[in-house]
Design a protein around this nucleic acid. Structure first.
Lengths: 226, 226
DNA sequence: TGAATAGTGTCTATGAGACACTATTTG
DNA sequence: CAAATAGTGTCTCATAGACACTATTCA
């Protein structure tokens, strides 16, 4: 039996959050009631491959149409599940969280966004470990890619995008350099203006091609990469 | 049943080569006689996790003590094996090829180094696809890491290391920039001198810490990364 | 000496970092 | 006008790229 698990990230309320599901309370299930990464068995009749399975589960959990989805890796071993040796294939998704209300089988109580940086949530299986790897991968890639654009509902402004970078990286980013670098990469289209409340409105943007992730020629800070 | 496959690279005779194994000839086995990535089932009694399994298989195939070994990803789907839906966890290794004579069960005839760039070898299963992904990952990482040091027997000289980069990348690299960047990263120790045949001897180096992969702050060529 | 390869120095281009500055909105 | 946030300009620094130059070996 093959399983696929998902690490679904978003930035909500200025915090990096992950979508978790509650394990069933039945006594014959491992880790009853604990939070866990959403996932489950491959449906060999419906899923042609692992990516299709991940896409199906992601849509089922969030309804998102064109998310960012990549494979994170796979974990397997003797001790991760009390029932014995097991392995799972893990995918990594970025969604515009403000638009997603967690649902699982129509019951919202057993799925929720939880902030990543609060001390570990005591997740089921080896999911603390997997979540740690996913956060590390996200932070690393955010240094030199346009991934945070997938975390915002469109259209968005450059200051909003900059704040998203800052939340994920946990440090401030220089505005001027950020704007120069982002606009020079030429992957955003202007689509009007978004008003501020008491201040100057900002230009609104949309990704030109959601399938294209931009890689910048250098990381944000040399400190981060050596 | 969980399987683990290995993509074992080296640079031999100025070419990037991969260690392949021949499928058994029995008629009840899929792809009889074709070349395939070495691998096989996890031994749940001996392998505590996937990495341990990969390490065991690598040692069995090559005898290498301290190779570079990382997870490449996992592949699963309906059509990769004629016997039905299957999935495999794939690891990626770099070994000093000049020191390794392929062996498999004591019989050298069914394992061999084959150059990666010759037109595809018609590998079994989806192994052409996996090998393509491994080569892409290697080429990408070589742009900004010290990975090629794992492909040379120690001690080695900087010109040898530079040639290894050039073979993998398929293009020439500027000597001066290469030396500056490599030595500035301060991960090599001088261990004497290696004589040339008719020319000036070169300083010999050894990795200071085989567990430490150096990441350079920029790629070799900006063209490659944007 | 010449052939061959090892190793150095110098100049330029690029893009990040820091930070001061200007622009446009509401009240 | 002030407050607040959006957006620009300028200077410095690190490092890749190009390429000419010097150094050391053997026959």
């Amino acid at each position: 039996m093959t399983t696929v698990d998902l690490v679904i990230f978003s930035v909500i309320d200025n915090a990096l959050q992950v979508l978790l599901a509650q394990r069933p309370q039945e006594a014959n299930e491992p880790f009853p009631g604990l939070w866990a990464l959403p996932g489950g068995f491959v449906d060999v009749a419906r899923d042609v491959d692992l990516l299709a399975c991940a896409r199906r589960k992601l849509k089922q959990k969030t309804g998102v149409i064109s998310p960012y989805l990549e494979q994170l890796g796979s974990w397997g071993g003797r001790d991760r599940d009390p029932r014995g040796w097991s392995s799972t294939h893990v995918y990594f998704a970025l969604v515009p969280g403000a638009e997603i209300k967690p649902t699982k089988g129509g019951n919202a109580a057993d799925a929720a966004w939880l902030p990543v940086d609060e001390q570990r949530h005591g997740l089921a299986f080896d999911h603390n470990h997997i979540l740690g790897a996913a956060v590390a991968r996200l932070r690393s890639k955010v240094e030199y890619t346009s991934l945070p654009t997938y975390l915002l509902p469109e259209p968005f402004t450059l200051p909003q995008l900059q704040r998203t970078y800052e939340v994920i990286l946990g440090r401030s980013v220089d505005k001027s350099g950020f704007r120069t670098r982002t606009l020079a990469a030429d992957f955003l289209d202007e689509v009007g203006v978004l008003d501020g409340e008491f201040n100057r409105p900002a230009v609104a943007y949309r990704m030109r091609d959601r399938a294209r992730v931009v890689t910048f020629p250098r990381t944000f800070s040399p400190r981060g990469s050596i």
